[in-house]
Design a protein around this nucleic acid. Sequence first.
DNA 1: AATATAAGTGTGAATAAAACACAAAAGGGG
DNA 2: CCCCTTTTGTGTTTTATTCACACTTATATT
Lengths: 223, 223
Amino acid sequence: MIEESIDYKNYHESIISLFTIDKGKVKILLVRKQTEPYRGYWILPSDFVPVNQTLEGVLQELVYDKIGYQDFYMEQCHTFSRLDRDPDDRVIATSYIGLLDSTTAILKREERPEVESAWFDINEIPKVGYDHEEVIRYSIDRLRSKIVNSTVLKSLFPSDFTLPEIQKVYEEILGVHLDRRNFRKKFINLGLIEDTGYKNEGMNGRPAKLYRFKENVKERNLF
Amino acid sequence: MIEESIDYKNYHESIISLFTIDKGKVKILLVRKQTEPYRGYWILPSDFVPVNQTLEGVLQELVYDKIGYQDFYMEQCHTFSRLDRDPDDRVIATSYIGLLDSTTAILKREERPEVESAWFDINEIPKVGYDHEEVIRYSIDRLRSKIVNSTVLKSLFPSDFTLPEIQKVYEEILGVHLDRRNFRKKFINLGLIEDTGYKNEGMNGRPAKLYRFKENVKERNLF
DNA sequence: AATATAAGTGTGAATAAAACACAAAAGGGG
DNA sequence: CCCCTTTTGTGTTTTATTCACACTTATATT
């Protein structure tokens, strides 16, 4: 079935766009490449897929190394197969998006200090190596289309949040301005969240009520 | 960067779920496997990806061989990496959906008569080999979520169609019953189609008006 | 000419979305 | 301590969209 004269074996890599929310801003994790090619460039975390591991397995390990956490929401995004996407070898790549809430998304102190990692605001992404600009674009598009899903929301927000915070994230990801009253009305009526009874004190202006997600929120589309 | 002791090279295959509409029914193309494993089983058309070709390139060639047509709407669906999805080798697979209108979706007379191909109603799919049942499920889900997109509609319907035809396809894919009056009103108001002036004669009952898609329909979501 | 079959057509009720402005709770400064 | 600034919280009206619903018309058949 497979002709021996043609090479049918490809390297395959898993790539992840890890997102989190920090102070109302959407952030993505990048790492700095230490070796040629693209030495010194920021790129998305990625790793080659050995024959004895799944695409998801590779990423769970990878994220566990960085964050110490492997039980997070992850969803496949797109597979890239352009012939010249890697200058050295033919590497097919499958990208995923992953979501962490801000209390989880804390980078481990690196055992290997030469591996630099950092969270970047999705509106201030530096020049990146390989075709990762395209990969990031696909990831943000996916995030945008998924933000109307309850699972995604729950993964992205820590237990206590305010409605203005969540509204800002919506506005940032969707690139629109929303009316505060209409947003609150709609969001509260979805029945996903409950008042904790606490307030977000210490800030300027009237303190916002703190909400949490209810226990048994089923995955569904919201809007 | 790549440890030599571990095998990082995988076979990679492209799989396609080709859909078309025939007499108001949604059909998918399957081929009969001639060799072990799964000899005699129906499977989706698929081929291995050599290092010098893209995922899409492989499928364009594959479909050209079967249909004689390579300029069709195609969209990536999902990449499958379960370790045991192929009993012989580690094969990662990327699936696509492809759409053909009924005037294009005509199987070539096979040069190799031993390669059997056939269109199956998506509600009457036989037992299939490998993990292709799962692949088909993903494909139909994708088709369902895409049917509300103008590009998809235009690819799936030939130049002259009736509103009852298109409504039946909606009902079949979405699995719902729609009110004829509301459907017509909504669909005509979208501004995608125009009356050809002709009628679908020769059938029982009042003949339906024939419509066509307007020339410059931009891709957008409809519903 | 009568009958059967499938297509074509409009209106009112219910629901959802959008527009809109002022009051309340805190912190900071004089 | 009072006033000012900042940010959150809250209801109503208007508009647009969706849903429910029944009779007429064009053709093929007998």
